[in-house]
């Protein structure tokens, strides 16, 4: 068999297989929506702020493992949002994190606008069930952000992993009435 014949067979297999795959997906009882991004799910047992510990709604929120978040933090490829109270944030937070406690969009507008330069946003708190982070995720999704994740793990886990951290108020946020 010559190379041209082999190449054409390879292409034919890939083309027919792709077409068949699309057709079978359409016929599947649980097809995958082709135009919707699919994010990794939480890893069982990793971190305390996980889908298993969170509310039912948290199960549908994409997450980012702590290890991946450490890389994203070092590479400035994601924005980190701290959903804890003002005092907790001032005591210590992920380096460069924006403080975004639960509130309405108008009140937090400046902080939210700072996030628009990032493709990915990772929200965290220090609660086992993401009780503070999940509402902020919902708020950001409602504000039009498309890639918002929960950190798989808490602020305590981040400290234990010796992730980059800093203390002090969020000067860039201007979130208006900040609250604990």
């Amino acid at each position: 068999m010559n190379h041209r014949s082999l190449s054409s067979q390879l292409l034919a297999i890939l083309a027919s297989g792709s077409a068949l795959g699309l057709g079978l997906n359409a016929l599947s009882p649980h097809p995958v929506a082709l135009s919707v991004p699919v994010y990794p799910a939480a890893e069982p047992g990793s971190g305390t702020c996980s889908a298993d510990a969170g509310a039912q709604q948290a199960r549908r929120t994409p997450t980012m493992p702590l290890r991946e978040a450490l890389t994203a933090c070092a590479g400035c490829t994601a924005a980190f949002v701290d959903a804890r109270g003002t005092a907790a944030f001032a005591q210590g937070h992920i380096a460069g994190a924006i403080h975004l406690p639960r509130g309405d969009v108008d009140e937090l507008r400046q902080a939210i606008e700072r996030l628009r330069t990032f493709a990915t946003i990772v929200v965290y708190d220090d609660e086992a069930g993401c009780q503070l982070a999940q509402p902020v995720v919902d708020l950001l999704v409602g504000a039009g952000f498309t890639d918002v994740r929960l950190l798989e793990g808490t602020w305590s886990d981040w400290q234990a992993a010796q992730g980059p951290a800093q203390a002090g108020a969020c000067e860039a946020c201007d979130t208006g009435r900040q609250r604990d």
């Binding site: 297999i13 297989g17 068949l20 795959g21 699309l22 079978l24 997906n25 097809p31 995958v32």
Partner: peptide, 10 residues
Amino acid sequence: AALLPGIEMV
């Protein structure tokens, strides 16, 4: 994910 099973099948 949609394409892979079809290619495997062929």
